[in-house]
Nucleic acid binder design. Sequence first.
DNA 1: ACAATGACTGAAT
DNA 2: AATTCAGCCATTG
Length: 115
Amino acid sequence: MKISEKNKDFFQSVFEVVKLIPEGRVTSYGAIAKCLGAPRSSRMVGWAMNASHSAKEPIPAHRVVNRNGLLTGKMHFSDPNEMQTRLEAEGHEIKNDQIQSFREVFWDPNTELEL
DNA sequence: ACAATGACTGAAT
DNA sequence: AATTCAGCCATTG
């Protein structure tokens, strides 16, 4: 699959935001999408994460979960278990593929980054 | 070009 | 409070 130049920029923006996520913090697709000015394109953010594998730079996609704190995209990683393991390594508590105290570790680029 | 899919979200039941 | 439905937007068949 090929990515148009136009969308590549969108992907790049997503990657930058994701890379800006502080360690021990997580965010949601919608938050990122909103930060990019496309609050309705949360799905595209997730799609961008899928493309993160093609990115030359390491994208901490494991810090990006849905607004429920659920690791919906863990299966898209090289090793699904790796996502949870990595999150736990950063001090998160995962239960049933869901981040406990998600609200405490949530990092909103719009607020924290104060765009 | 049309229809279907998806790492989502918000509203309705 | 939990489950279901519909809307969104880009990619793919």
